[in-house]
């Protein structure tokens, strides 16, 4: 069976989508000859044509606004924002137009476009290359927000996002670009968007994670098992819409929940998950829902980022604090 990195799986998804539909076009900064700074678009321009995968001027609002116009005329643009923080100049286009054009025109116009954003830290990069920007997008009605946690999902979720009639902000956990998996990739592996997945079953507590934190949660579950904790790991995959049913079904089984995010904890996406779990599962909960997140600081210099980023120990500390002493 072949081995893929997450970046290669994303590349394969783009290639397969472009081959399946001539209206799929890929553009952004350095996506052509270079193949993207993370090589996600490697070889696409050379093999599929420079009109299918092309470089643009260095202007993120321009890239997204241009994609809006192309989508209005039937194309399916997949645009790359080079880094999380470099996507902010496009924020007005994303929130004022991408998210709203269908609604504004009562369905007369739809925008089937995908905005790919490498996000999160953990790669030793300098400032403005490590933001977790998911909450900004998830808070905006009209956008779908998707983030893969595994190599297989990187392929299937990107294919599904490109086929989706709604605009999708596709957040790629850049520290997992080099994660490897042995698997077959190809058509027919599409997953419907909007479903969470249980990555590991367990009966003592549910650890809810997404994007870069899925692997960290799995690591915590492995380590926890050595201490007798059987942790269930839920990978959200879709942040908007949120598959709260899968989350709550798990929490009702385990009675305890920890929500993990890499982003600063305050007003983070995990707060929404925690609130919904509390609202829906109150009588099943043996302890308050715990949140594990980054520090409430601007993203730190790389020499200090390990203090910011949640790791398996921080997740297990949160599990340990779930009021086991009061267990019935």
């Amino acid at each position: 069976m072949p081995t893929y990195t997450m970046a290669q799986a994303l590349n394969r998804a783009l290639r397969d989508a472009m081959e399946a539909d001539q209206k799929v076009v890929v553009f952004g900064e350095d996506v052509g000859a270079l193949g993207g700074v993370f090589r996600v678009t490697d070889g696409l321009a050379a093999s599929l044509g420079e009109d299918r995968c092309f470089d643009t001027p260095l202007a993120e609002a321009g890239i997204v606004g241009f994609a809006v116009g192309m989508a209005m005329r039937g194309f399916r643009p997949v645009v790359e924002m080079q880094f999380d923080a470099f996507a902010y100049p496009a924020f007005e286009q994303v929130t004022s137009h991408v998210a709203k054009l269908r609604n504004r025109t009562a369905g007369a116009l739809s925008l089937p476009l995908v905005i790919r954003i490498p996000y999160g830290g953990g790669i030793g990069a300098v400032e403005h290359h490590g933001d977790s920007s998911e909450a900004y997008y998830a808070h905006t009605p009209g956008l779908r927000v998707v983030t893969p946690g595994t190599v297989a999902d990187a392929y299937s979720l990107l294919r599904a996002s490109i086929e989706c009639p709604d605009p999708v902000v596709f957040l790629e956990p850049k520290r997992r670009y080099w994660a490897r998996a042995e698997l077959e990739l190809g058509p027919g592996q599409g997953e419907p968007l909007g479903r969470a997945a249980i990555r590991r079953p367990g009966r003592h507590a549910t650890v809810i994670a997404y994007g870069p934190m899925v692997a960290t949660a799995m690591e915590a579950a492995e380590a926890g098992a050595e201490d007798g904790w059987e942790l269930e790991v839920v990978d959200l995959r879709s942040l908007s819409p949120l598959d709260i049913e899968t989350v709550c079904a798990s929490v009702r089984r385990t009675g305890r929940a920890v929500v993990v995010q890499e982003a600063p904890t305050f007003c983070g996406y995990g707060a929404e998950v925690a609130a919904q779990v509390a609202e829906s599962c109150f009588h099943y909960l043996e302890a308050p829902v715990a949140r594990v997140g980054g520090l409430d600081i601007p993203y730190p210099p790389p020499a200090l980022e390990h203090h910011h980023l949640p790791d398996a120990d921080r997740i297990l500390d949160a599990v340990a604090g779930l009021q086991w002493e009061d267990a019935r």
């Binding site: 009109d51 116009g69 192309m70 989508a71 209005m72 005329r73 039937g74 194309f75 007005e92 054009l101």
Partner: peptide, 24 residues
């Protein structure tokens, strides 16, 4: 196109749409 309130944002849509038409 819908009347645009955020200034100049629709100018990019005009560029993108007309480029798309040209490609077709």
């Amino acid at each position: 196109a819908p009347q645009c309130t955020p200034l100049a944002t629709h100018a990019l849509h005009a560029a993108g749409l007309s480029y798309a038409c040209g490609r077709l």
